[in-house]
Each structure stands twice: as structure tokens, then as C-alpha cells.
Design a protein around this nucleic acid. Structure first.
Lengths: 177, 177
DNA sequence: CCTTAACTTCACAAATTTCTGAAAGAAGCG
DNA sequence: CGCTTCTTTCAGAAATTTGTGAAGTTAAGG
């Protein structure tokens, strides 16, 4: 806190590690697998937004097997993509550029499933009963939330595009890279 | 599906149990402790939205200790409240009426913490670096989300109030009970 | 006050999850 | 084609989590 720690050229590796571990811990607390959280946080803190297995294993002090498992999970939930390093037989794991969009789209699916289960539950309880009424309301809440989430993501992308447009007045570049 | 199963008077207990277990499993998959999920689902499916420890233990086939643990968690995250049964030394566990409001308010706090961690992380990485930029954007995303969530909850309550007002033309009653 | 009903805490056994080393499996490169 | 480098799979050891019975605590009611 008292020292602006990153020396000329290199950043303060210890501070970065601390951030990686802290954010990973928060993700873990929220229910994500521990290794997946750590790998994700490490990618987030990398300049290119991508690392290969060896780099991950070294930075996080974990076995290649652990990397493999974490990546399997993260790609399944569309949080990272895998690509080949040209001129090498290594693979590179990269944060999706549409990261939060993909992640929240996925979470959206959960809301839909819950909604369905709840509606079936309301049927089982017999319409008219207070329980069925409560459960129906809950289902409706999730339907509402689902609709709103979609809009939010649209708004976020618009918001981001706006900022990007501002930037573009200085730096004219390809938005994809 | 082929039979409208609930007999006159009593509902189809098996179907209700099935719902409770299914919805609980979905909550568990989303990261909630198993017993907490089951207790919560059982409360949701009860007519009064409340049960006591003995009822929960019997319906879910679990020990009093398990009930106690689940309730401790659920009340900590403001999903149920505890109250005394008058004329008895039993306690009654009740779904909060502002259930989703409370739950999402709580989740909101997580967003705020993440945001903070991310901003600190961006500092550690040194402004100007691509990593810091990415992390800042993520922090901004959560700030955005937080603001939107608050609005959504307001809209939901308005939405619910509207429907309640419609109902009130038929059934004039105390909204609390 | 003492009894007793109800809930909580605690220590432990069981089940599950997590991570690793070792072996097997792909895929570029010579 | 075989060698080499990288990744994945697998079986098992270690750690963690989970649920229980039993003892402990609290407070209502006689």
C-alpha cells in the first residue's frame, strides 16, 4: 500500500498473484470449482488474455492434469476457447471476447429450466392451493428475470460499443482484436 | 401426465415430493448446500410457506441436526425467518415474503465485492497494460449489472403490485397474510 | 424450581471431491 | 514412419464436506 510497487518495465508479480488468488477465491465461494477459478483468474490477469498449459501450470503451481481438468470445465461453459499455437504443438487457452455475454446466456438457460420445474410443481400441487400460487409466482419471477437479463446484455453491449466508439476517435483499429 | 392425480381433498403427496426433490436438486446444482436446498423447496411447496423442524425432518427424512444446519444457512442468507409457534415451544420456519428481493439484494453485495477486487487488481497490473484494461472493463460490467439489478427488482415489485391490485378487485384482503 | 420438549452443538463415520503421478493418446517434425 | 512434445485419462491418496447420534443448552409449563 505504501509503495507503488511495479518497477520500471516489469509489473509487481507478487501483487498480481495476490489478485489472481483473491479473485479466484471469490469465484470459488460463489460456487465455481477451485482450479477452474484459478485458471480463469490467471487468464484474466494476462496481457494477451491467453496462456498455454505450461504457463498456467507454472504460475499456479499445479499439475498438467489439473490444468486439463479446469480447461475442460471452462470450455464447457464457454468461458475460454482453445486454439493452436502456430508453429508449435502447444495449445493456447483464450478468454472469449464475448465473455460475459456467453456466461450469462448460459446462466439464462438455468432460469428457463427452473421455470419449467416450478410450473410442473404448481400443477402437482393443484391449482387453487396457496402453495401452487406461491410457486407460480416464483416461476413468473424467473420468466420476468429472464426477459430482463436478455435486455440487460443488449444494453451492456451497446454501452460497451459506445465507449469503443469514443476510443476509436483516437485509435482507429479493428474491434475484434 | 395421463392422470389428474390429486384425489378429492388431499393432493398427490408423491408428486409433490417429486417436485421438492427435483427443484432442490436444481438449486444444489447451482451451488446451494444440499440440505438447505431441500428444506427451502419443502417450504416453498407448503401451503402456509412455513413448517416446523419436526415436519421438515419427517417430510425429508433427515435428522433434527440436519434441519438445524440447513435453517442456520437459510436464515443467514435471509431466505427464511424463524418465529415461535404460539402456545408451544416449537419454532416455525417461514419463507420471507420479500423472498427474492432479499435473496438478490444479497447477491448484489457479491457483485460489489467482486468489483472492488477487480479494481484493485487493475491497479496492481499497472494502468495502461492490456490486462488492466480488461479487468477494468470487467469491473465496469459488474457495476453496470449492479445498477441494472436494482432497477429490475423495483420493476418486479411494481409488476407484482399491479397484479395484486387486479386480484384485490375480487378478494379484498390483508396483503401480509 | 424441576421437568420436559425442542433445538443446537459436537465428534465422528461415511461419502464425495480434488489433485496428483503415471501411463496412454494425439500430432507435428525430422 | 518413428521420435518427441504436449495433452488427456485414469486410479488412487489426501483433503474436504456432509449428515448423524448423542450430549448439551435453553426455556416453557407445571
Amino acid at each position: 500500500m505504501t509503495e507503488g510497487a511495479q518497477a520500471a518495465g516489469g509489473r509487481d508479480a507478487a501483487a498480481v498473484d495476490r489478485f489472481v488468488e483473491r479473485f479466484a477465491a471469490e469465484l470459488t465461494e460463489a460456487g465455481m470449482q477451485r482450479m477452474a477459478s484459478r485458471v480463469f483468474a490467471a487468464l484474466l490477469a494476462s496481457d494477451t488474455g491467453s496462456l498455454n498449459a505450461a504457463e498456467l501450470a507454472e504460475r499456479l503451481q499445479i499439475s498438467p492434469a489439473a490444468v486439463s481438468g479446469a480447461i475442460r470445465y471452462l470450455s464447457q461453459v464457454s468461458m475460454v476457447g482453445r486454439e493452436r499455437e502456430p508453429g508449435s504443438r502447444r495449445e493456447r487457452y483464450r478468454l472469449h471476447s464475448e465473455l460475459w455475454y456467453e456466461t450469462f446466456t448460459r446462466r439464462d438457460q438455468v432460469l428457463i429450466r427452473w421455470q419449467q420445474t416450478l410450473r410442473e410443481g404448481a400443477d402437482s400441487l393443484g391449482p387453487g392451493t396457496p402453495a401452487a400460487q406461491r410457486i407460480s409466482e416464483t416461476a413468473e419471477f424467473f420468466a420476468f428475470l429472464h426477459a430482463e437479463m436478455t435486455q440487460i446484455m443488449d444494453r451492456w453491449r451497446a454501452h460497451k460499443a459506445d465507449r469503443a466508439a469514443e476510443q476509436a476517435t483516437e485509435t482507429v483499429g479493428d474491434p475484434e482484436r
